[in-house]
Amino acid sequence: MKKLYPTLRDFSLITLGAFIQAVGLRLFLIPANLASGGVSGISQLINHGTGWPIGVMVLVGNIPLFALGWRFLGGRKFIIRTAFAVATFSFLVDALTLILPPEGITDDILLNSLYGALVSGIGYGIVYRGQGTSGGSDILARILNRWRGIPISQSYLMVDSAVILTAGFVFGWKEALYALITLYVSGIVTETASQGLSVVRTAMIITSEPELVSEQIFQTLDRGVTLLPGKGAYTGVERTILYCVVTRPETMRLKRIVNEADPDAFMVIGQAHEALGEGFAPLNEV
């Protein structure tokens, strides 16, 4: 049962995410002629000229991209989840025409752009949490993210620019400009939905009083500290570097601790998306 649960969880997340994506596409993007990028966007363009079902074209258009996903994103495990996500999304995109109004719920292109990005981005992020993708540009974006470390939001902009440009000729340049807004906001929402809202602070502290600073952090914040040896390149003086991770509200208290223990300390505070392990969220296998 322990081995079966992660698989059931993943496919449940993929199903939920595909449904949310389909709702965003049908309720906001298609009525406003906002090409959503990737295979979905190309399918919208073809549908505009031929009337062919968007869902069917999404499914057919993703077939050649499965080979790339197999090669770069995890082989059999990837292809099964992605094929399931694409098939579910394709079916729902066409099936939702039976229950959702074809004209959407608003004729305001800005509202359609922003809400389409929000809803679709949440759907994308949930699919990612299920260890799958929605095919199309998602495959190319994740390859760029894993191969070159390019953030997913930037990857979307890179791989979908050609679709948006083509949409300008088909739907009009006003719609294409709003589609760019949709694409950008959707990428940010996708990252947030897939990685979570847990933003933490990392601190590097160079001090001549490492024991005192560490003890105060232990007692006041109840946070762990890692001691790293360091040496100034210019002065040649050896100093101990403290590394610790705190929550955002604890940042000011950490500054006060360091200032009171060693006013001459040098401190750098950075930002991390997530902290897993003792004192933070549990490091569960995904």
Score class of each variant (00 low, 15 high):
99 I>P: 05
99 I>G: 07
223 R>P: 02
80 I>W: 10
220 T>C: 08
171 F>V: 02
73 L>K: 13
136 G>W: 02
31 P>G: 06
53 P>W: 10
108 D>W: 04
202 T>K: 02
105 I>L: 15
37 G>Q: 00
208 S>W: 08
149 G>S: 13
123 G>A: 07
179 A>N: 02
35 A>R: 05
87 A>L: 14
137 S>V: 06
162 A>L: 14
194 S>W: 03
69 G>M: 13
241 I>E: 01
253 R>V: 09
172 G>P: 05
225 V>Y: 02
102 P>H: 15
124 Y>L: 12
131 Q>G: 00
108 D>Q: 08
1 M>V: 09
48 H>C: 06
186 S>D: 10
137 S>K: 00
253 R>L: 09
200 V>P: 02
6 P>T: 06
53 P>I: 11
195 Q>D: 03
86 V>A: 07
80 I>D: 08
88 T>P: 03
23 V>A: 04
44 Q>I: 11
118 L>G: 09
258 V>S: 05
278 E>A: 10
107 D>F: 11
221 L>T: 03
63 I>L: 15
149 G>D: 11
121 G>T: 07
268 V>K: 11
33 N>V: 01
80 I>P: 07
108 D>G: 08
216 Q>K: 14
274 E>F: 05
75 G>N: 13
20 I>K: 05
209 E>M: 07
156 Y>F: 14
152 I>S: 11
205 I>Q: 01
202 T>Y: 02
169 F>A: 07
8 L>Q: 02
26 R>I: 10
248 R>D: 05
14 I>C: 06
269 I>L: 12
86 V>D: 05
225 V>A: 05
244 C>Y: 01
152 I>N: 05
36 S>I: 00
259 N>F: 09
217 I>A: 10
156 Y>E: 00
113 S>V: 13
129 R>C: 04
195 Q>K: 07
284 N>A: 10
136 G>F: 05
273 H>P: 00
22 A>Q: 08
100 L>D: 10
70 W>T: 14
46 I>S: 07
179 A>S: 08
183 L>G: 00
111 L>W: 12
116 G>H: 04
214 S>Q: 13
194 S>F: 07
272 A>N: 07
183 L>C: 00
25 L>N: 06
186 S>N: 04
10 D>E: 15
137 S>Y: 00
141 A>Q: 08
238 E>V: 13
81 R>I: 09
7 T>N: 11
49 G>E: 15
172 G>Y: 07
4 L>M: 13
141 A>S: 13
159 V>Q: 00
158 M>V: 01
230 G>M: 06
249 P>M: 10
278 E>W: 01
27 L>P: 02
239 R>H: 13
272 A>P: 03
99 I>W: 06
19 F>A: 13
206 I>M: 08
133 T>Q: 06
31 P>V: 09
102 P>R: 14
73 L>P: 13
246 V>Y: 04
123 G>L: 03
271 Q>T: 15
258 V>K: 04
35 A>P: 03
53 P>G: 12
286 V>Q: 10
56 V>R: 09
144 L>N: 01
188 I>G: 02
240 T>Q: 09
233 A>C: 09
163 V>S: 07
242 L>K: 01
165 L>I: 14
109 I>Y: 14
229 P>K: 12
52 W>E: 08
42 I>N: 00
99 I>T: 03
70 W>H: 14
27 L>K: 03
158 M>T: 02
99 I>Q: 05
212 L>F: 12
170 V>C: 08
13 L>N: 07
10 D>F: 08
106 T>W: 06
205 I>G: 04
89 F>C: 09
